[in-house]
Design a binder for these strands. Sequence first.
DNA 1: CACAATTCGATTGCGCACAACTAAATAGCT
DNA 2: AGCTATTTAGTTGTGCGCAATCGAATTGTG
Lengths: 157, 157
Amino acid sequence: MSTTPTTDWLRLDQQICFSLNAASRAFGGVYRVVLKDLGLTYPQYLVMLVLWEHGDLPVKKLGEHLRLDSGTLSPLLKRLEAAGLVRRERSARDERSVEVRLTEEGTAMRERALQVPRRIATATGLDVDEIRALRARLDDLTTALDAAVAEEMGAGR
Amino acid sequence: MSTTPTTDWLRLDQQICFSLNAASRAFGGVYRVVLKDLGLTYPQYLVMLVLWEHGDLPVKKLGEHLRLDSGTLSPLLKRLEAAGLVRRERSARDERSVEVRLTEEGTAMRERALQVPRRIATATGLDVDEIRALRARLDDLTTALDAAVAEEMGAGR
DNA sequence: CACAATTCGATTGCGCACAACTAAATAGCT
DNA sequence: AGCTATTTAGTTGTGCGCAATCGAATTGTG
């Protein structure tokens, strides 16, 4: 099927990474439109989802749920605080920790956010089972990629 | 299967977008390790791939291949130029256009880049057919998402 | 108790992505 | 020719993602 294997490899490579990247950015575009009413960006929306589901959390726990570190979360949370959706309070029993708490306004926003998932799901053009299947594949891929990075780190190269 | 449909929707929604986002960032981590030897970031690597495949191109064409605009490409290309991999020259017959040309060094880098795709493919833990299938799903998803954004823009939600 | 190691968050710096705008050149129309 | 609209890069500003570093607090150990 190929007379120039090196070129084929380069092109195949591009297609995997590029497709994923493109899909991710296309999703970003949809969320940008859908979340405009709420005044949230997509990562901010993810933070709100976690808080709505799990209640108040320290920054560390929030980061574990979202796979994000403080370098990303600190400024993001300040913007959410400036928007009046969240308060940040140092924990009393561990002064290193900062508790992120929903304000009344932040809690109230959940009602308005309930319409978001349907609109996103519609935009994907996929049904529930297809979404589930795709999600499973992507999670497996993420696991494999993370493991590969961990190996490279440990084994040098 | 669910007694609280709204909550289920929120969680399903989170899982789709989040899984995609996580996979994209996990890919970034792998590329960061693999491209370290070449001194390229992942988007810079994509630009080099396009140039290796299509030869010299104006910024506009480059952006069409990569779905990126000048706001992203201009500084990126300046960094590639500073690294000596690329030259930017205003077109003689259309002064608005800037041709991006590979330098000898940039052309030579292709040889070293040939090892990258194999290492990435290995990291995914997928075989060629699985990669192809996943790519097709992601491309379909991107198409659907782009169409949805276009509709929202046109129909005003 | 004293000291070292760890944890947690914030900050800084760099690069990407995108929107909005500017400037320059070209194309098209009258 | 003259005027307008379009095309093409570039610039600015905002926000995310990540690495590296710092300071403060806590924990572990002798």
